[in-house]
Nucleic acid binder design. Structure first.
Lengths: 353, 353
DNA sequence: CTGAAAGCGCTTACAG
DNA sequence: CTGAAAGCGCTTACAG
């Protein structure tokens, strides 16, 4: 049981002593508050540097009466897909870890098929003056103008799930969409022959969200570069009703000999359901996301590969990035790409992110 | 900028007030220290329960003069393989995060080919009375008796990298070795035909560490169950000198037509070097661990798959488990299996754990 | 067995 | 523009 103590005392007290000022003045300089003459400020700053002073975060948060408030803005979990459960879980995990530091998190949910719900949430958030915002920027234009307002107000924004490259913000935590698509294509190489035909299926109720398109681009360009012999075609289904999906898939499979289907979003289970219903066995299936329904089909061997990018961790790290920035004054790196995880029948039991 | 304050005051002060005792007495009960009469102890305990009191960890660590000391005991990084760099990195990361809580970590390294170095380190650790120990239990017997001593002294032990199932301890964080081997086998299915021959190569200077054997078992049993047609044979190489490895591999490849080689530990790069030197192109290669040398051969297409289980995270989580237990009094779950990650040419750039 | 008081390293009114 | 003092929720000698 060694004791603390023999450490050099480098705290506000020592700084104040050396600068020959009161502790409160040191505090003012430390937090860049006004009401300090340039002269004393310079003197104190010099001493801080010299001593390589690091504030004690424990003491700071314990003494501070201020509550830090973050806002989280992500799609609501729909009946159709529970994908967003995962990031939310990570967010809650982070929340419980940092609650002791006097941090509170408000959650706002929008409908990813409805721009206006996104606008409504972002307006509310702007009114409330948060210390930081975690955001899935599903709608490009709206997100951009929202972040612009935040930046003006000095509020840091973190993106998860998909990026908005040219938008100034604290950081992005999520997939490199292009390479995720390219990896999917690479995996297809293990499943099909040299002359096989590949069908990209996009099931989505509204205009393609650009992040799905980016994955498709990675997928296609991989084939163009490494597997020229394969024929890749695309089918758009703008409807998530079972009948419509069945009809479209049937049509596509009848008019082409398809050896593999690739779905760039989480809705690969629709195709698997279709395979099951119509007893289609010899078409390979590759898709995204560790949803219960998807995993069930992976287990049964209907889906061959799922690609997943740690949605829980995205939520967790997103919140922690805000925490690091606001509490510890640590700027995380601009872009944090998640690993591209490959899930098969052989390892899904151990996937947990 | 909302303020704290309107919270119900549930701290030692309030407990002391209600119990009509001094704060110090509440503290004694809270920490199970002796010197409190049964009667007052019962009264205070009841109030603590009633109030659902949770101590403020910030205040506790700030006020406490005691330093918590953890010991870490893992293999040293050898020239031959830098695998253990990764767990160490995770350990250091955790260390820097929790340093502010007054926690210090001492690191002990042993030679994984030398039992006596393991014993030496464990003896030193026992003498020093740590608050917690993180351990790679490479040597089964020695580890068991070491943990027995720790348990006697009330010191929690966390295992990483490989487990010792029947040894009482705080928890295990690492791979499910059997299923890691089985996944390797599953991946081989994508690479070889139905009648192909598979060679398991074990390169190791000393008796097989049991955790490599466990992986091999998973690998073999997968083939026995799902790919009966394939012939699986095994080659032991008890030497890490290049010449010896070349000689043995050559012999094996000459006397059998081998389509795929599987290496259950991190030394798959030796086989890749051999392939490169002798221009062997049509033998597939599957192995473990994200070492620089392995990744280089993955990039070149010499190695087809690497399996990896987040060594950095194992180190990080191992330390954090001790921290959670010793500081927050949170018991983590007994066994925390890591995901089994599949690394290919298509996703290695994004692997970071 | 029990209590009063100082202190951990900060922040925060308040006074000047 | 600056300072003295109280307080955040605990722990720790010390005294009785």
């Amino acid at each position: 049981m060694k004791k603390k103590g023999n450490k050099e005392l480098v705290g506000v007290k020592e700084i104040a002593r050396r600068a020959n000022v009161a502790i409160a003045t040191v505090d003012r300089v430390l937090h860049n508050r006004k009401g300090v003459s340039e002269k004393t400020k310079a003197k104190i700053t010099a001493i801080i540097e010299e001593l390589n002073y690091k504030p004690n975060i424990l003491a700071r948060r314990l003494a501070s009466k201020e509550i830090l408030r973050f806002a989280v803005m992500i799609p609501s979990v729909s009946e159709e897909t529970d994908y967003w459960d995962a990031p939310l879980e990570g967010i809650k995990q982070a929340e419980s870890e940092i609650a002791t530091y006097g941090i509170e998190i408000d959650k706002y949910f929008f409908d990813q098929n409805d721009r206006s719900s996104f606008l409504k949430a972002s307006d509310e958030i702007l009114k409330k003056k948060y210390h930081g915002i975690l955001l899935a920027p599903m709608f490009a234009q709206e997100s951009e103008s929202f972040v612009r307002e935040c930046t003006k107000a000095g509020i840091p924004c973190v993106f998860i799930n998909s990026d908005l490259p040219d938008t100034a913000s604290l950081c992005y935590i999520g997939p490199d969409l292009y390479h995720a698509g390219a990896l999917a294509a690479h995996l297809c190489g293990y499943l099909i022959g040299e002359k096989a035909n590949v069908l990209i299926v996009n099931i989505s109720e509204i205009d393609n969200h650009r992040h799905f398109l980016r994955k498709e681009q990675g997928f296609k360009e991989y084939f163009e570069e490494y597997r020229k012999e394969n024929n890749v075609i695309k089918l758009d289904i703008r409807d998530t009703a079972e009948q419509a999906i069945s009809r479209e898939l049937k049509k596509a499979l009848e008019s082409n000999k398809i050896d593999l289907i690739f779905v760039a979003n989480s809705r690969v289970f629709y195709v698997a359901e279709f395979f099951e219903k119509y007893k289609i066995k010899n078409v390979k299936l590759v898709g995204f996301e560790f949803l219960k329904k998807n995993v069930a089909y992976l287990e049964q061997g209907v889906i061959d590969f799922l690609i997943c990018q740690k949605p829980i961790e995205q939520g967790y790290k997103g919140v922690m990035a805000l925490y690091q920035y606001c509490v510890h004054d640590i700027k995380v790196k601009d872009v944090h790409y998640m690993p591209i995880d490959i899930i098969t029948k052989g390892n899904y039991q151990f996937y947990s992110n």
